[in-house]
């Protein structure tokens, strides 16, 4: 099943790096993901995130503020659902 991943952030460099990292790790692990970038402030705030970039996996906020660590990303994608 495809994992739904959203990167929350207004298009800053860290947000692009985060999105690229997630794509990379997903490809390595062979996990199918549907990656979306959420750039609208109002929508980012709806997730309760103020420090960007934030990451939402299958509807749950798993990260807020700063580029996440590669190992962390691997754990999110691996987690049982």
């Amino acid at each position: 099943m495809t994992r739904e991943v959203k990167v929350l952030g207004s298009g800053c460099r860290n947000c692009r790096n985060t999105a690229a990292l997630i794509e990379e790790v997903a490809a390595e692990q062979g996990v199918a993901i549907d990656l979306q970038k959420v750039e609208e402030t109002a929508e980012i705030m709806r997730y309760g995130v103020m420090s960007t970039p934030g990451v939402v996996v299958d509807g749950e906020v798993v990260h807020a503020g700063g580029v996440p660590d590669r190992k962390e990303v691997a754990q999110w994608l691996d987690a049982p659902r």
Binding site: M45, Y47, V61, H63, A64, G66, K71, E72
Partner: peptide
């Protein structure tokens, strides 16, 4: 007009290796 959702506090890994990874990041 913006409605903010419940503030999210993603779980943090507080083990020593977790802290080290966070600090390096």
């Amino acid at each position: 007009q913006i409605q903010m959702g419940e503030t999210a506090h993603p779980a943090v890994d507080n083990s020593l290796p977790g802290r080290h990874r966070f600090a390096v990041g």
